[in-house]
């Protein structure tokens, strides 16, 4: 947490950065992993098909260890978003096995999905903020859904918005915020419940390069605090700037690149 005080990458105003700003520590459920704690996400020969069309992904096999950081890279339309959708459970594989937090997606009942989703934070390129809610209410949404007490909600959300440099925009509606600010609200919403797994789909796609780099630093900070991070992007420049493992989606297959390739 002290790292956050020292390195806020320009999001928080200096006065706040020097203050006692810290990431809220609300954890909704004890973080229970499978017996094999080395694996948070497991894909085994996974295929993805929409309707009766051809498989856009086939034979995808990889694992993500807790606390790891991966870029999910590949050209537009390669299937990066589909892989993320499998991970946040809005899509089921057409073949193979997906295992999240020790649970096979195939054996999951619909009732069990919300509890698992509370352990996953998702950031979208188009932010997907609720336009009728303020920044505070948007960020508070996961906590309120989880039934956290309102006094705790306000405290933690305010602190987190301060941390991402939006202390002055707590009551602002998304329409009045810039793209970078909206993205930070979206990130705050994704991490407010301290997820075990953070998935980001082209999070820097709608912001300029400098803000994109700042957001990456933010993801790295979260990763250093133990969150497993997967960032889907086709921005090779950004990928080359940060030395993390890559899941490359090419020709409908997924290849794990443990050392970043030369750009």
């Amino acid at each position: 947490m002290s790292r956050l005080k020292r390195k806020n990458h320009g999001f928080a105003p200096p006065a706040q950065a020097a203050g006692r700003c810290k990431l809220p520590c609300v954890i909704l459920r004890p973080q229970r992993f499978s017996r094999d704690a080395q694996t948070l996400v497991l894909f085994e020969n996974v295929g993805v098909r929409y309707g009766a069309g051809p498989e856009i992904i086939h034979g995808a096999t990889f694992t993500l260890a807790p606390g790891s950081f991966h870029f999910l890279v590949g050209p537009s339309g390669a299937g990066k978003s589909s892989l993320l959708r499998l991970m946040y459970m809005t899509l089921r594989p057409s073949s193979g096995r997906v295992n999240l937090f020790g649970r096979d997606l195939d054996s999951l009942h619909r009732r069990e999905i919300p509890l698992l989703r509370r352990r996953i934070g998702v950031v979208f390129q188009d932010f997907r903020l609720l336009s009728n809610l303020t920044a505070l209410d948007n960020v508070a949404l996961p906590l309120r859904i989880a039934g956290v007490r309102e006094s705790q909600v306000r405290q933690h959300v305010t602190e987190l918005l301060q941390w991402v440099g939006l202390a002055d925009h707590v009551s602002a509606y998304p329409a009045t915020l810039s793209g970078g600010q909206q993205q930070r609200v979206a990130i705050a919403r994704a991490v407010i419940a301290r997820p075990s797994l953070l998935l980001a789909d082209e999070p820097t796609g709608n912001v300029d390069d400098s803000i994109g780099v700042r957001l990456m630093y933010l993801f790295e900070e979260l990763n250093k605090m133990g969150t497993t991070v997967v960032i889907a992007t086709h921005n090779e420049r950004l990928v080359s700037k940060f030395e993390h493992r890559q899941l490359r989606v090419e020709s409908a297959t997924v290849r794990l690149v443990t050392r970043p390739e030369a750009a």
Binding site: L28, Y88, T90, R111, P114, L115, R117, R118, V122, R128, L130, L141, P142, I145, A146, R189, A193
Partner: peptide, 15 residues
């Protein structure tokens, strides 16, 4: 679309 987001952050259908 909004319901999808609310689902994604862990809401049950009952919520």
């Amino acid at each position: 679309r909004v319901i999808e987001i609310v689902h994604l952050v862990g809401a049950y259908d009952s919520y």
